[in-house]
Every structure is written in C-alpha cells, then in structure tokens.
Design a protein around this nucleic acid. Structure first.
Length: 363
DNA sequence: CAACCGTGGTG
DNA sequence: TCACCAAGGTT
C-alpha cells in the first residue's frame, strides 16, 4: 500500500523516500509485543481493557502497570463493577501508581459511561474526548485500538519517532501541532488500530530515547535524522526547571502499640483523596530541627526520629522529619482521622511517600 | 500557555 | 549519583 506525500523535491526523495505504513505493519506482525490488555491477532479488542490500560499507561511504564492492571481487573472486571465501587476503593487499588487524578477521573468516567452511555464506550474521538480523564492522545488511542478508527494517537513515543523521521527542528511542546499533522499523514486506511500500536511498539523497542536500534528499524531508509546521524538529538526540548526543595514534619502516632493514626487528604490537589499520616504543611522555609509545630491532633509527647525521609515529586523535592508518639489504647481518633491496624497497613492504600514514612518509623 | 500532578527505572 | 524519562490530562 503506497501513500502520496506533498511534492517532495526529486533530490530530497532520493535521500529520504517517504515512510511506507505497510513496512511498519509488516514489522509489527513479526515483532508486536504481547501485553495483557492487547488482543491477539484476529481477536476483537475489549474497549474496557483498552481504556483502563491507556489511563494506567499515561506517563507510566509498561513494567510498572503490569501488576496494577491485573489487580485492578480482578477487583473491577467490568465498567459497571468499577462504577459501582466507592472511589476510596479505587484509590486504594491505585495507591503507589501515582498521578491519582487519573484514578478519580477513571471512576468518574466509569460512572458516566454506565449512566449516560448504557455501559458502552463511545467509538469516536469526539465522543471519547468528552469523558473525564480522556484527552487528545487517549481519545485517539481508544478510537484506533478498540474501534479500528484512523486516528492519530500521538504520545511520547510517536513524538520521538516522527521528529526523527522528519528531522523536525522545532522544540517541544510548541512542535506538538506540527507533529500531530505529520503523524496524521502517516495513518493508513487499512489496519489503523494496528498501525497506532505498531508506532508505539517501534518507539518503545527500537526508536528508543537513547541508543536507538536503527539497524532493526523498518523505517531506516526514510529516516531523515538517521541519514544525518543526529537521531539521538530528537525530539528537541526546552530545558526543564530545577525542582525546589520543601520540608515538613510527619507524625507517627501509635495507639496501644498496634494501630497508627491516618487521615484522608483533600479530594483535589497533590495526592488528592489519598490516605496519609498527620503532618505539617510542606514549605520551603520549614526548619527540620525546630520543635514540632502545635498541629499534632492529639495530646502526646513526641520524639524526633533520627534522619529524614526524602521523596521526589514531579515539581518539588521533599524532606520530612518524622516525630513518633504513643497514646493509650482507649484514645479516640480526632475528627476526620482513624486508627489503622499496623498489621493491615499494606492494604491501607498509602501513596509511596507515606510508605516511606512508615518504613522510617518501623511500621 | 504554563503550572500542576507521582513514581520507579535507567545510564 | 542524578537528570531524564514513561502509552498525558486538567486548570
């Protein structure tokens, strides 16, 4: 299957013949990855599995998603089951995977699909785009993969492949519209769903960020960056800002030697809706060695544990001093908090920074 | 448009 | 070690 391109000059065409989607599809047929959410050749994909996997895979590696996907599907085998669950249960299953707005939006999306769409996902990009948590990339990916629509699903892999293929000098993120247009021009009318997955597999396994395996690439001949030997310099990007440092204190409050005090964070913002141990705000000017602030929700003598807990978030670094205290077994939990059995802490759904605090305190 | 939003792996 | 990165979306 050949495709037309807008008037390449004769000399340019000799250097770089246009990329042929058929070459990529032939490579895909021999080299496709087998993934738990991906249909086998000839099998119909399940839109629910495609959707859950696409949300989990946002800014997250296939390896990290694997166990979460299995656990999630066991707990919520259908979109109706997910919609019927309380959001706290969904967040608990998501704990440790990060970007928790994805889990809140996933739950809201399940309810929208169940209540507004009769339990069936829209099969077009515009229809999918209206649902919470589904942006331009994910709408195109679901339309292509689950419904075999000729949509251009442009993720980080595709941005890298396309900018190398055309040696696109414009830096991200300003170059996104140009990349999208170039990618859309590649999408074939036959097997568009396989093409979308092939492009991502190529980026993930051959056209990698560092040391791409150009010798194995089905688009070696048409790649403009490879012709120049500059493939590793694409995509061009603006330098990222340094992450500032914030500090705070966390309180590890144990009742009767068997339970620890937890509370739930506000529904939106950082770690929104997740469980946490009580603590101070995280601020740039916080003094780790100052006496603990009077924000402890109980009357208890606190002792500073040696060392600090460090954790990196997307846009700041965090250092926490941990203070431990013990109260009597009949002490009631303050409003909005609860006593969590230390033996069941692993199932409590703590985000990673809170797991680090627990480990630091010996919990 | 730019800031915000997690985490684990990697060279 | 540490900067960069991974199937982005929302505000």
């Amino acid at each position: 299957m050949m495709f037309r391109y807008p008037l390449p000059s004769a000399s340019r065409r000799e250097k770089s013949p246009p990329p042929d989607p058929a070459d990529l599809l032939a490579w895909y047929d021999l080299n496709r990855r087998r993934l738990p959410w991906r249909a086998e050749p000839g099998q119909a994909p399940d839109p629910y599995l495609v959707w859950v996997s696409e949300i989990m895979l946002q800014q997250t590696t296939v390896k990290a998603v694997g166990p979460y996907f299995a656990s999630f599907l066991a707990a919520f085998p259908t979109v109706e089951a997910l919609a019927a669950a309380p959001v706290e249960e969904v967040l608990r299953r998501w704990a440790g995977l990060g970007y928790y707005a994805r889990a809140r939006n996933l739950h809201a999306c399940a309810r929208a699909v169940t209540e507004r769409c009769g339990g069936r996902f829209p099969d077009t990009e515009p229809g999918l785009r209206e649902l919470p948590g589904i942006g331009p990339y994910t709408a195109a990916a679901i339309a292509a993969i689950a419904f075999d629509r000729p949509a251009a699903a442009v993720d980080g892999n595709v941005e890298r492949v396309v900018t190398r293929l055309f040696a696109l000098e414009a830096p991200l993120p300003a170059a996104k519209p140009a990349i999208r247009a170039l990618a859309a021009g590649l999408v074939p009318s036959v097997r568009p769903g396989d093409f979308a997955q092939a492009l991502m597999d190529l980026g993930a396994t051959v056209c990698t960020p560092r040391a791409p395996a150009c010798a194995l690439c089905p688009w070696l001949a048409p790649c403009a960056a490879r012709a120049d030997g500059t493939q590793e310099t694409f995509p061009r990007k603006a330098a990222k800002a340094v992450r500032p440092l914030r500090r705070g204190a966390a309180f590890w409050l144990v009742r009767g030697g068997a339970e620890v005090l937890l509370r739930r964070r506000p529904a939106k913002g950082l770690l929104g809706g997740m469980a946490e141990v009580p603590g101070t705000a995280w601020q740039a000017g916080f003094d780790l060695d100052a006496p603990p602030p009077a924000t402890v929700p109980l009357e208890v003598r606190l002792r500073r544990l040696p060392g600090v807990v460090r954790h990196g978030f997307t846009h700041f670094e965090l250092e926490l001093a941990v203070y431990a205290g013990e109260v009597a077994a009949d002490t009631p939990a303050p409003a909005g908090a609860w006593w969590q059995a230390l033996g069941g802490l692993g199932q409590a759904g703590l985000p990673t920074v809170m797991r680090k605090i627990a480990a630091h305190a010996g919990g």
